[in-house]
Design a protein around this nucleic acid. Sequence first.
RNA 1: GCCCCGAUAGCCCAAUGGCAGAGGCAGAGGACUUAAAAUCCUCCAAGUGUGGGUUCGACCCCCACUCGGGGCACCA
Length: 670
Amino acid sequence: MFIELHKRGLAYRKDSAVNWCPGCQTVLANEQVVAGLCERCDTAVTKKKLNQWYFKITDYADRLLDDMKELEGKWPDKVLTMQRNWIGRSQGANVNFVIEGRTEPVTIYTTRPDTLYGATFMVVAVDSELAAELASGTPAEGEFKTYLESVKAASDIDRLATDRPKSGVFLQRYAINPVNGEKLPIWASDYVLADYGTGAIMAVPAHDQRDLDFARAMKLPVRVVVQSDEEDPSVSGVATTGDGKMINSGSLDGLNKVDAITAINKQLEADGLGKSARNYRLRDWLVSRQRYWGTPIPIVHCQKCGEVPVPADQLPLTLPDAKGLDLKPKGQSPLAAATDWVNTSCPKCGAAALRDTDTMDTFVDSSWYFLRYPSSTNHNEPFSRADIDTWLPVDQYVGGVTHAILHLLYSRFFTKVTEPCTRLLNQGMVVMDGSAMSKARGNLVRLSDELENHGVDAIRLSMVFSGPPEDDVDWSDVSPSGSVKFLSRAWRLSGDVTSKPGVDFATGDIALRKATHKALHDAAFAVESFRFNVAIARVMELVNATRKTIDSGPGAADPAVREAVEAIAIMLSLVAPFTSEEMWERLGHKPAIATAGWPVVDEKLLVADVVEAVIQINGKIKERIEVPPTITDAEIEALALAHPTIAAELNGATPKKVIARAPKIVNIVL
RNA sequence: GCCCCGAUAGCCCAAUGGCAGAGGCAGAGGACUUAAAAUCCUCCAAGUGUGGGUUCGACCCCCACUCGGGGCACCA
């Protein structure tokens, strides 16, 4: 996979300030840094300048975003929203500003080109090369360097803090606003990011909160160019970001936001001063890791030929023997010490060459593991086109929401052409003492003890019955002993049945037969819609009805009892295979119940003989009557109006309106 | 600050816009038993977080709010 991506220029190396986890002693992808902490070990992540391998996921940003339309309604909205936010597409414009004393203009990115006349200063990212260049040789250089050092020293966590006061340095230089020729002071600050857009912005304090905060801190002017009813931002401290009529904006005056953006973009483009542009929050996926475990990067570095992929007949490239290697995290890949493995010859020219010693992020492997499943016995290639065409995409994927922007985004990138998983269900977590069970927290249930005490069937049943699968389940609400009781109750039924296997069910008690077929029908529907807790409730109902039929009804010998108990065993086999297998044998059947198949539901047995209908007057229930299920609207309406209770209530009055919904309800409106 | 999800008996949870209760836990009473356990039977409770709206009719749809959970958060 790596080589295929490399061939297409989608796997490449670059120098960059990367996320570095001091705990794991390895680099991390943006997606693996959660609130400034390492996703694996919760250590605060720092920055380090390194040359690393990347996958060009940004080339696919638009497709990853736009193809989500296909997943609408089939994946949880939450996951789709998270992916949309993560990709973070924004539409705006690049605008060129001439810099005094510099030949090259500086390009800035803005989503609000309409507010160009409101710009009162320019800000460049303090850690960008541009900032260093602009500062050099100015009286501000010393101050700039001090500031840059202090920013570098601050961790990501500090940087993420919300109400952090704005800081920055005036670089003693000026940019010229292309639309009105104004001289704008240029500042360097850490509130502008070096790796987003062009790393430089025009500041419009009146209509951008961050710019306003900065302007107020540095005593810079604020100019309103979009009229609004709200208080002057320079007084209120709140930037006005809504729509309104343009003012103080030359030819744009009087236009609304959308029209002004169109007009200014057109004008900038005509004058060669800028053009509309798009930006993404998504960054390329950093895949190098300095760990032993992981897939080695199949590249040989040759003095002459450069990066040479390992030839196909030498794949898969396997790791060197770990024996003798120091696998402890130490900031350099442990593979580097395996000199026998590292030293090799160039596949192209045969000269001495070195293997790449980094391994890949494990998310690389999980991005396509499901492609291997249909071809698991194929020893010639990772997967075959024919198998994939037959079996994929995955119809139903079940996984935790924790992978919303990791595994689930990477997988979509790997298979982009199509979507890897048609439907997605995020199952909930098991909660104990208020938080998700985890080894790190130590709030665990000893599963072995639970299994010892209650049996695997009861534990599994408890989990499934505790609520809908997408909800979290609090362990204190789980009752394995209740499940044990229920399973015993069901199991006992199998010993009560006295009729022989193969008996004709048609001669059995009709009431129980109806209950059985309704349970089978409803449970199947519930299972297919992932409401396992409801399916179990249907089985419990049938167990109760069967118990009653045996104890105080037609008795254990009735064929309907066998039909019911067999149905119970089969339905339970989904979550309690051991118990149901025993039931199956006690019922006189050969193993295995798994091969028994779901009993065919007799539609005729699903129809009730009589149903209870409700008669309402003005939406209030006044009477209940028994009617055949086949009754028509007109018939039930006539029955209702003729009913003595209703006639008395009406007392001769003519209803304004009668709504009949046979066979359930009649509502008489007075 | 912005976005999303949720709120139904003491508890976990059901209910195509049409009788609020399917199921379980807990609780009460009873049968069986010398007794207890186990088993079996019966009973018990909320009017659906709050306030409006749409509708003949709202747990369900719409608006606002409260509380709880989650996500995003200097991305110009």
